[in-house]
Simulated assay, not measured.
Amino acid sequence: MTHGLTWDAAHAAVIVMILATFLLAGFVKGVIGLGLPTVAMGLLGLAMLPAQAAALLIVPSLVTNLWQLLAGGNFIGLFKRLWPMLAGIALGTVGGGGMLAAAIGGKAEIGLGVALVIYALIGLTAVRFSVAPRNEKWLSFPIGLVTGLITAATGVFVIPAVPYLQALNLEKEELIQGLGLSFTVSTVALAIALGSGGGIGGDLVGVSLLALVPALAGMFIGQWARMKLSAQLFRRCFFSGLLLLGLHLASRVLM
């Protein structure tokens, strides 16, 4: 494994691995509405440092999430409903920006994987959580803040924002758009955190731009596949995807 990759002399095999990773990550995101950073961070972490992998995520994650966000028709309504959570995400991510390069990042990633596995198993057994509208007022900001801190530590945006959004009982396409909104804010905040710490260099930005092509291609294919799914099958794919992502992250303790 090559840690501390020198980008001006990057081997062709590493570039191919990066492109293949983002093609797969984009496809997963297209099908279930999330997973690009989780898949990419997990696989890229085999070849480079977490902060480098997170820097490569910025362009593909931002563009694919904006695409996902703008594809729906309820942006204003969702923003008004979710803005406290979004504010918490931004504050937690930027405020905890130094954690990704610290030792806490690896431990947090394993904990995140375990949390995803538990949540996915609950979802696959048809246990449903629901957040009453009156509770959103006080829950949204702390949910966002914790999500931001976990993003700062792992580069992954999903916990607890995804279970929370799913518990709001949104329609399928509303849920996908809500995820896109949450992840867009997370990506921008992560870029600010990495940039302020000097973690985004010109070479990394160039490779991140290159990775956008397979990420978009994978997402387009995945979205086409999602439109063919029934609501019940989509739910199974959603939670099965979370389960696989969680197992992948949790298994890193054995590596």
Rank of each mutant, 00 (worst) to 15 (best):
A215C: 08
L112S: 10
L244G: 09
A71G: 06
V16L: 15
N65R: 08
W224D: 07
I200D: 00
S61D: 13
G33Q: 06
P163T: 05
G96N: 07
L244M: 12
A71M: 09
N135I: 06
P133A: 13
G33R: 07
V31C: 05
G155L: 09
A101G: 06
W67I: 07
L216H: 11
G92P: 02
A40I: 11
Q166G: 08
V131L: 03
P50M: 05
G197W: 05
A20L: 14
P50D: 00
L229E: 07
P142W: 03
E136F: 10
V114N: 03
L49Y: 04
A215Y: 01
E109Q: 13
G42N: 06
A90F: 13
G72S: 05
M17Q: 07
I76R: 14
A9S: 14
V28H: 00
H3K: 13
T21A: 12
I89R: 02
W224A: 14
G198D: 09
G218T: 12
V39W: 00
A102D: 13
V253G: 15
V158T: 07
I200M: 08
P84Y: 03
L5Y: 03
M48S: 01
M1H: 14
L242M: 15
A193F: 03
L165G: 07
C237P: 04
L242N: 06
G199F: 04
P142C: 05
C237K: 10
G218I: 11
A101H: 03
T93E: 02
T21C: 15
L249Y: 05
G218A: 13
A120Y: 01
R134A: 15
G155E: 05
V16T: 14
L247D: 03
I104V: 13
P214L: 11
E109G: 06
V63P: 04
A55Y: 05
A126M: 12
A103S: 14
Y119G: 06
A40C: 13
P163Y: 03
I104D: 01
L19E: 05
G33M: 09
E171M: 11
G95A: 12
L229K: 11
L62V: 07
I143R: 00
A231F: 10
L209K: 06
P142L: 04
T184P: 05
G113P: 01
A13K: 12
